[in-house]
Amino acid sequence: MDLKKTFDQALWVFHLNTGSCNGCDIEIVAALTPRYDVERFGIKLVGSPRHADVLLMTGPVTRAMAPRVKRVYNQTPDPKVVLVIGNCGTTTGVFYESYNILGPIDHFLKQIDPDVKIVYVPGCPPRPEAIIDAVAKAWLVLEELRGDNK
């Protein structure tokens, strides 16, 4: 079986909340429901990172979540792309200088994988269209990783 081909039509995503306010999370769900319906692209939310091609991460990393971010990233099979949704996951945003916020998500991902592929979706929260737009950008990255870009 050609593993590459199986990725072509359907991206499976795993959603991990690393300490977000839930604003981005409801916009992700909004993108799945009738108005935006990303399932028409074959995008599906799955319950385990081991099934996922794309990781959706939201929120600044709290003290309790930091080891779990790394664990989830390691459990996801290659090739993988991380979508960081919202500005607090990108840079910690409003939650800077707290004793319980350890930093933005990429800070931890780069510790374990310096070549991690991340697409950021700025917004507080981003509209569902911005998330779909970013998924398309993640597609480009996945294609480049697989060498499909002629």
Partner: peptide, 19 residues
């Protein structure tokens, strides 16, 4: 249908070619 088909209705086979 209620869905707003942004940006296209179905996923393209190859994103680079679609662009």
């Amino acid at each position: 249908p209620f869905t707003n088909t942004f940006p296209v209705k179905y996923a393209p086979k190859n994103m680079h070619k679609a662009l």
